[in-house]
């Protein structure tokens, strides 16, 4: 199978790279996060949602040409067939199935299996070689039900009605997911956004994902923000931006927040364990479900998962691809 796919995710037969970091002639992009989608490729194959996200972030001409491909629509190039399947990670996120001469390779990109109103639901694809992410590839990562985490946020809002609750969340995907979860829990008050969130929230709404009443936080007065939910990029949590808010409770929505030491280091008072990646039980479940005999592990804590696969009698290798965001901290 190494003849089909190089260890830097290069599909030899059609000279295409999956999520390349350097500009390439032909790129297949799994999803719009910056460590997967880069500008400057000649030809980009991706889902329509991913293309829209790339164009919103990098401009309409961020690639030479775009080939939008819907989920489950096979694209045949010579002897190779490429099909995208939903990865459940963020809006438009895809797994890539590569078929050649009866062999099936799946590159998951980033993925999760829990239901999420803001992303097309994950579909399991059986394969011979699975290239899986391992952002949360340690058995200490067992994500709780996100509805419970939102419940803790709502309780804190009720307990501290005068304090703004500012939630650090990555602008693409996590912010919209948190908003959608709040709406599902019946929270219908306006939600206040940091400037970095606005364009992408608008894009989600345009593409059919309603987010309810949203406001621009810097245009709101202090009284209005007391007891309000404010969503900002994690980097804004500790800076002057959030210190202007009324007596803020610093929250953060991330899979890393299950480790208290991490939360404490970042000065997070209300950690919300909400992840857009599979946790350890889902990772190991997926490896079993897809019935692959070979597993390549990339993007995160590779050593533990490779060890686990080998214990299970599978052939497994770490890929050590450079350039993915260190530990997926952004997500």
């Amino acid at each position: 199978m190494a003849q089909m796919l190089d260890r830097n995710l290069h599909i030899r037969s059609i000279d295409a790279y999956i999520d390349p970091l350097l500009p390439r002639e032909r790129a297949i992009i799994t999803h719009g996060h910056a460590d997967h989608a880069r500008p400057g490729h000649s030809k980009v194959l991706a889902t329509p949602d991913t293309i829209a996200i790339m164009q919103t972030r990098y401009g309409p001409d961020c690639a030479g040409s775009f080939q939008p491909v819907g989920f489950g629509e096979p694209v045949r190039i010579d002897e190779t067939t490429i099909t995208l399947y939903p990865a459940g990670h963020i809006l438009g996120s895809a797994q890539v199935l590569i078929e050649q001469g009866g062999l099936r390779v799946v590159v998951t990109g980033d993925y999760k299996r829990l239901p999420d109103r803001t992303a097309q639901p994950f579909e399991l694809v059986e394969c011979d070689l699975l290239v899986t992410e391992a952002t949360f590839g340690l058995p200490v990562f067992q994500h709780p039900d996100p509805a419970d985490e939102i419940g803790r946020l709502l309780k804190s809002l009720a307990d501290h009605p005068a304090r703004a609750h500012v939630i650090g969340a990555y602008a693409l995907g996590k912010a919209q997911r948190v908003i959608a979860l709040l709406r599902e829990a019946g929270y219908d008050r306006p939600i206040y956004l940091h400037g970095a969130m606005i364009r992408l929230c608008a894009l989600y709404e345009e593409r059919g994902i309603p987010l309810g009443p949203l406001r621009y936080a810097t245009e709101a007065d202090k009284a209005e923000l007391a007891g309000a939910v404010v969503i900002a990029p994690p980097s804004a949590l500790k800076d002057r931006w959030s210190r202007r808010l009324p007596d803020p409770v610093l929250a953060m929505a991330s899979g890393w927040m299950s480790v208290k030491q991490r939360a404490r280091q970042r000065g997070v008072e209300l950690p919300l364990v909400i992840s857009d990646h599979v946790d350890w039980p889902e990772l190991t479940q997926t490896i079993a479900d897809c019935r692959a005999e070979t597993v390549w592990v990339t993007h995160g804590r590779e050593d533990a998962l490779v060890y686990y696969c080998r214990q299970m009698g599978l052939a497994a290798e770490p890929l050590n691809i450079q350039g993915y965001e260190d530990e997926g901290e952004e997500e």
Partner: peptide, 21 residues
């Protein structure tokens, strides 16, 4: 598995928290 436990403990840094998680 002890090896997975060791990798996890190394990452988390606190024995009690590792056990809990």
């Amino acid at each position: 598995d002890p090896h997975l436990f060791a990798l996890s403990y190394d990452y988390v840094g606190d024995l009690g928290e590792t056990i809990a998680l």
